[in-house]
Design a protein around this nucleic acid. Structure first.
Length: 270
DNA sequence: ATGTGACCCTGGATGC
DNA sequence: TGCATCCAGGGTCACA
């Protein structure tokens, strides 16, 4: 579910409510997430003040004086702010209370992760080998070209590879390639510098537009206020197989790459 | 060394 | 209505 835009919308929504607030209670209802939830999370968090919330790729990092809480939303996770009076529902696995306000993790498929990091988060195995942030100045066509040189995989799975560039999942990979006019089956190492020069700004534009629209809500994703995103209504190709390309009128096609659905316009993307 | 597929899990949609 | 099958925003692992 959540790709970079949804995670960033969540971060932006939570930060003003929770930054500088002190944790009063932690309730874990399951430990069976992607990684077993650490047992003494309450002892680590209660009484500590949240300094701020940052994001690295699709990971959220909650910074405390004593360490960092790392949260990944997996395929179906969402974080919302609830009142302490609201009863937890099915799949509400974790509550972190800041007085009356409760940060509640909901994740039906439990592919998400909650980890405590005592040391430097950048050195953590899950974060240490991540690629460049796509919305940073460091994400340039030259840098992408260097990463893709010699790669014999297709361009679409290549830009979803978090060791190259983070945050681009299945929706925004298809969307960005359509915006750039690149066939998703093109060999990554063979895409010309000129085309990468189109692709990099296409990725940035796509992600920024999605963030502005509150992300894409297909099924499970909701922002921290419970509101759905709007970007799914602006999808150019994702989920639109058989419908007409908004640019040229050709029917959108679907194919499978690395076991994931890819959507593209055969006329606009060559 | 790379790249692809199975798998983790639940639930919604679809088809018989 | 019920059951079986397939599919889904991610990431890791075992294999070719």
């Amino acid at each position: 579910m959540p790709e970079l835009p949804e995670v960033e919308v969540t971060r932006q929504g939570l930060a003003p409510h929770l930054s500088g607030r002190r944790i009063s209670e932690v309730v874990a209802r399951t430990t069976a997430l992607r990684y077993p939830l650490c047992e003494d999370l309450g002892a680590k968090l209660v009484g500590h003040t949240l300094a701020h919330i940052s994001r690295r790729g699709k990971y959220l990092l909650f910074q405390f004086d004593s360490g960092h809480l790392l949260i990944h939303l997996g395929m179906s996770g969402s974080l919302r702010l609830a009142s302490s009076k609201e009863a937890a529902g099915k799949h509400d696995h974790l509550d972190i209370s800041f007085g009356e306000e409760v940060l509640r993790l909901h994740d039906p498929r439990r592919f998400g992760a909650v980890l405590w990091i005592a040391g430097d988060p950048e050195q953590h195995p899950l974060l240490a080998h991540l690629g460049v942030e796509p919305l940073s100045r460091e994400f340039t066509a030259a840098r992408l070209a260097a990463c893709l040189a010699g790669k014999r995989t297709a361009i679409k799975p290549a830009i979803m590879d978090a060791s190259i560039v983070v945050g681009i999942g299945n929706i925004y990979a298809s969307e960005s390639l359509h915006r750039a006019g690149i066939d998703p089956r093109s060999l990554a190492g063979r895409v010309s510098a000129a085309r990468l020069g189109e692709l990099v700004p296409a990725i940035k534009t796509t992600l920024r537009a999605a963030i502005r629209s509150g992300g894409s809500t297909l099924r499970d994703y909701y922002g921290c206020d419970g509101a759905a995103g709007d970007f799914q209504f602006q999808h150019r190709v994702y989920g639109r197989a058989g419908q007409l390309c908004r640019t040229c009128g050709s029917p959108i096609r679907m194919l499978r790459q690395a076991n994931r659905a890819t959507y593209y316009c055969p006329r606009c993307q060559r």
